[in-house]
Nucleic acid binder design. Structure first.
Lengths: 138, 138
DNA sequence: TAATAAATTTGTATCTGTTACAATTCAGTA
DNA sequence: TACTGAATTGTAACAGATACAAATTTATTA
């Protein structure tokens, strides 16, 4: 399990000064690999951190993003979602319940950046959509 | 070039009753393959269609989406974008100017839906990001 | 054609995710 | 301890999208 100390060290690896708030947010991301939204992070932390401001969560995630400590997922039309796992993997969003799941075991070829497109391509995002099994059987 | 009459026929193929507004929106989409946002469509049409309401553009695009006449792109954090080309192709978004470009000539294998994921996968979206050449040289 | 019903469009109000920004608090240093 | 800069906070503002009722248009029936 991830502790606060480990989250602290993790932030330092990305040259992020580990404040109490930043460490708490990173700890949450390391423990909850559910691609949470800003609101979910805020709601999860505010009970044990009553002074936490939602603006701080926004600031923090934007900082993490700049430093490459997290990846922002653009798969949900409503909210931005964040993923600490920055290695190559795809995502699936259930159009019924809205949950976002990882899809590992995809061919590495899918994540190769295309050549000769006339653009300077830096990143790929592979997003699947449909209905998850839980929603399907209800 | 696409005419109003062709747009009219195009709508009928998707069982969409072709009102004046719907035909105008579809004609715009067929002529402008730039993955426009709702606002761009509205701003382009309102000069020659002064009574047009932005709500109608929203309603219209949602209807097109339901009937499969357009594809919604979730690649731009700010706005939804729409594409009349529903065949398999990828997209590139320039993080500097925000323009969205098509990327054809990708391997068809990229668009195959994964099996045994535990989900009912219906669609894929392959999104690249980076900086376009115009922005790069400025 | 006239009257009626149904569908579409419109405008306003509302909601929600996000950002801007000034004030406050905190951390580190002299 | 006092000072300086960074981080956090709360409020206000903004923008994309939706809800909804009123108005308009289109289709249907007499």
């Amino acid at each position: 399990m991830y502790t606060s100390i480990q989250s602290h060290r993790y932030l330092l690896q990305f040259s992020i000064k580990p404040s109490v708030q930043r460490t708490a947010v990173m700890e949450y991301l390391l423990k909850n690999r559910t691609h949470p939204t800003i609101d979910e992070i805020y709601l999860a932390l505010s009970p044990t951190m009553p002074t936490l401001s939602k603006t701080t969560v926004y600031n923090t995630l934007n900082l993490f993003l700049e430093r490459g400590a997290v990846q922002q997922l653009v798969i949900d039309e409503k909210n931005a979602r964040y993923d600490v796992d920055t290695t190559s993997h795809g995502h699936f969003i259930c159009k019924s319940c809205g949950k976002v799941y990882d899809i590992f075991n995809l061919s590495p070829a899918l994540f190769e950046l295309p050549k000769n497109t006339g653009f300077n391509v830096h990143a790929v995002e592979i997003s699947y959509s449909g209905v998850c099994n839980e929603c399907h059987q209800n």
